[in-house]
C-alpha cells in the first residue's frame, strides 16, 4: 500500500510539473530581472548613466507625488467596482430569479458586456456615451434640463469605474443567478409561511446560500481589477494630472514614456507587494468560503 501511495505521489508530481514549473519560471525570471533592474541606473534616454543605484530608484519612485495617488486610485477603483458589481448584481439576480416572458433573451442581453474587449469598452464609453457634446449621456442630461457632464475631465476615475463595472456587472449577476437556481424552494416557502419579510429572508436564507458565490466573484474580480490597464490607457491616459492613474498605469508611464527602466522596476516591486497585501487580506476574509 505504501509503495502504491509513493507511486501515486510520483505520478502526481509528474502531472503537476509542467504547470508548476512554467508558472514558477513565469514568476521568477521576470521577478529576478525586475529586482536587478531596480538596483541599477537604467534609463534608455540616458545610456551614459549606468552602474549600481542602490535604493535610489525606490526613493525616486516613492517620492514621486503620483505614488500615493496611484495606490489610492488602485484601491478605490478595485473597491468601488467590487461593491457596485456585487450590490447591483445581487439586486438584478433577485429580480430575474423567477421565470417571466423572455427570460432567456434577458439573460443573453445581460451577459453581453462581459464578452466585450476592454479597448472597445473604453472607446465606446469615451466617445459615444460620455462625450460632453455629442455623447448619449449628454443628450439624456440635456433632455432633463441638466448641464451635460464632461465625464473624463471632471470625473475621470469615476468614469473608469463606470466602464469597468459595466463589464463586470454581468459576470457577478449571472453567477448569482446560477447560484440562486439551486436554492431550496421549500425552505423559502416555509420561511414565507412563517411570516419572514424580504429583509429577513435575504439575511438568513439568501446571503448564506450565496456566500460562496459572492466569494468567488470577489476573488475573480480582484485578480482582474488590481491591474486594470487598457481602460485607462485608451481613455484618460491617467489624467487629468494623476486623477485616474492607478499603479499599473504609473509603472507604464515610467517605463515606456519616461524610458526609466530602473525606476519602473522599483515601481513594479511595489506593485507586487501591494498585490500580495491585497491577496493576504482576501484569503483571510473569504478564504474560508472558498474551501469546503
Amino acid at each position: 500500500m505504501s509503495s502504491q501511495a509513493r507511486g501515486n505521489r510520483t505520478t502526481s508530481r509528474l502531472l503537476m510539473s509542467p504547470a508548476v514549473i512554467s508558472l514558477l519560471l513565469w514568476m521568477l525570471v521576470p521577478l529576478g530581472m525586475t529586482i536587478y533592474f531596480s538596483l541599477i541606473y537604467y534609463n534608455l534616454m540616458n545610456p551614459f548613466l549606468e552602474g549600481w543605484a542602490g535604493l535610489s530608484n525606490y526613493e525616486f519612485f516613492i517620492s514621486n507625488p503620483a505614488f500615493g495617488d496611484a495606490v489610492w486610485n488602485t484601491l478605490l477603483l478595485l473597491g468601488s467596482t467590487v461593491v457596485i458589481t456585487v450590490g447591483l448584481g445581487l439586486a438584478i439576480a433577485l429580480l430575474i430569479n423567477d421565470p417571466f416572458p423572455g427570460r432567456g433573451l434577458v439573460r443573453i442581453l445581460l451577459i453581453s458586456p462581459f464578452f466585450v474587449m476592454p479597448t472597445v469598452n473604453a472607446l465606446l464609453w469615451k466617445h459615444m456615451m460620455m462625450n460632453p457634446i455629442y455623447g448619449f449621456l449628454a443628450q439624456v442630461w440635456t433632455f432633463f434640463g441638466a448641464e451635460p457632464v464632461d465625464w473624463l475631465t471632471d470625473l475621470p476615475l469615476f468614469s473608469v469605474i463606470i466602464m469597468v463595472s459595466w463589464q463586470w456587472l454581468p459576470f457577478a449577476c449571472l453567477i448569482f443567478i446560477t447560484s440562486l437556481q439551486s436554492m431550496d424552494r421549500e425552505q423559502l416557502e416555509a420561511a414565507r409561511m412563517d411570516g419572514a419579510n424580504f429583509l429577513q429572508q435575504f439575511r438568513y436564507l439568501y446571503v448564506p446560500h450565496l456566500a460562496r458565490s459572492i466569494s468567488v466573484v470577489i476573488m475573480i474580480e480582484v485578480i482582474f481589477l488590481l491591474s486594470i490597464f487598457a481602460e485607462i490607457y485608451t481613455t484618460t491616459a491617467g489624467g487629468p494630472g494623476t486623477e485616474s492613474t492607478n499603479f499599473a498605469f504609473l509603472i507604464f508611464t515610467e517605463a515606456l514614456l519616461n524610458f526609466d527602466v530602473g525606476v519602473a522596476s522599483a515601481g513594479a516591486l511595489f506593485a507586487i507587494i501591494l498585490a500580495n497585501i491585497v491577496a493576504i487580506f482576501l484569503i483571510r476574509m473569504i478564504g474560508k468560503n472558498l474551501e469546503n
Partner: peptide, 14 residues
C-alpha cells in the same frame, strides 16, 4: 492564483 494577482505591468520590462 497569487501569480495572477501580480500586475502584468510588473513583468512588462523583463
Amino acid at each position: 492564483l497569487s501569480t495572477k494577482m501580480m500586475p502584468a505591468v510588473g513583468a512588462l520590462v523583463p
